[in-house]
Amino acid sequence: MNPIIDSPKPRTNSNKRELLFTFQSIIVTGLLAFTAIAFFFYFDLTIVKGIKIIFAPFLSVVPLLFILSILRDLRKGFKEGNYTKDEIIRFCLITVGITIAFTGITFLLAKIEALEILLAAIMAILSAVFFLRSKIKDILGMSIITGIAEGIIVYMIFLF
């Protein structure tokens, strides 16, 4: 019928899923940076102790690198076929739950008054995202990352 459409696919579904997962984690990283900048300018945060701001990222980045180096992959990777209805419902519920949780966490972030603590908190979340990105390559990781992104956005729209 149509030779162009029916040509063999060079890329598999799991590759496509991995690409989407990478995009999603890039979006979350951007959103977290956006949150930090927005809070910084809006609340006029001050740097209380200069030395702390240099060491804030190390607090979470060092454990992350250590864990990444010693841990093997937790999940087998992305599935090739379709997900069943039960799985879809379950992971959508997880996403909604994480969204609500992260709306609350962003609300708590807005209460922070010093820039170095905000930076440390954001770096901690970012490390968690990178951990999910590199070790839990699965639908679970995808739903958690989506939940984080949506939670931040929901806070920004409705509560900020």
Partner: peptide, 22 residues
């Protein structure tokens, strides 16, 4: 900030839907 957030709102959701319904 609110407007940027409301524009960004659908994008993660779309990615998630696409991930499920590959």
């Amino acid at each position: 900030i609110k407007i940027i957030a409301s524009i960004l709102f659908p994008i993660p959701m779309l990615f998630f839907v696409r991930f499920l319904l590959i």
